[in-house]
Simulated scan of single mutants.
Amino acid sequence: MLDKETIRSFMKVAEYANFSKAAEELHKTPAAISYRIKVLEDAVDTQLFTRTTRSVHLTQAGEHLLSQCQKWLDWMESMPDELRQIADGVERHINIVINNLLFDENAVSQLIFALHEAFPFTQINISNAVYMGVWDDLLNNDYHLAIGVPGLDTIDNAVKLKPLGKMSWSFILAPNHPLAALNVPLKESQLRHHPAINIEDTSQHINKRTAWLLRDQKEIKVPDLSTKVACHKSGTGIGFLPKNLAKPMIEKGELIEKEVQWSRTPSPLSIGWRQNSAGEVTQWIIELFNNNDPIIQGFLKNIDQLHH
Results as ranks from 00 to 15, higher is better:
residue 204 Q to N: 12
residue 133 G to I: 02
residue 144 H to G: 06
residue 205 H to V: 08
residue 182 L to H: 12
residue 198 N to W: 01
residue 130 V to R: 05
residue 181 A to I: 13
residue 171 F to V: 07
residue 144 H to W: 03
residue 130 V to M: 07
residue 165 G to W: 06
residue 132 M to I: 02
residue 163 P to C: 07
residue 205 H to K: 15
residue 129 A to V: 02
residue 155 I to L: 11
residue 213 L to V: 11
residue 156 D to T: 04
residue 156 D to W: 01
residue 213 L to G: 03
residue 188 E to A: 09
residue 141 N to E: 14
residue 179 L to F: 02
residue 198 N to C: 09
residue 157 N to L: 06
residue 137 D to I: 00
residue 167 M to H: 04
residue 185 P to W: 10
residue 190 Q to R: 04
residue 209 R to G: 00
residue 179 L to T: 07
residue 205 H to D: 11
residue 157 N to D: 14
residue 205 H to E: 12
residue 164 L to R: 07
residue 210 T to K: 12
residue 173 L to C: 05
residue 154 T to W: 00
residue 177 H to E: 11
residue 196 A to Y: 03
residue 217 Q to C: 03
residue 184 V to G: 01
residue 181 A to V: 13
residue 155 I to S: 03
residue 178 P to I: 09
residue 188 E to C: 01
residue 174 A to T: 05
residue 141 N to A: 12
residue 177 H to V: 05
residue 208 K to H: 05
residue 178 P to K: 09
residue 205 H to Y: 10
residue 167 M to N: 06
residue 131 Y to N: 13
residue 206 I to Q: 11
residue 189 S to Y: 01
residue 176 N to C: 01
residue 141 N to K: 14
residue 140 N to R: 10
residue 128 N to T: 11
residue 202 T to E: 08
residue 129 A to E: 14
residue 218 K to Y: 02
residue 185 P to N: 11
residue 147 I to V: 13
residue 165 G to V: 06
residue 155 I to T: 09
residue 161 L to T: 10
residue 159 V to Y: 02
residue 176 N to L: 08
residue 195 P to E: 12
residue 178 P to M: 08
residue 173 L to S: 08
residue 209 R to C: 01
residue 198 N to Q: 14
residue 172 I to M: 12
residue 163 P to V: 07
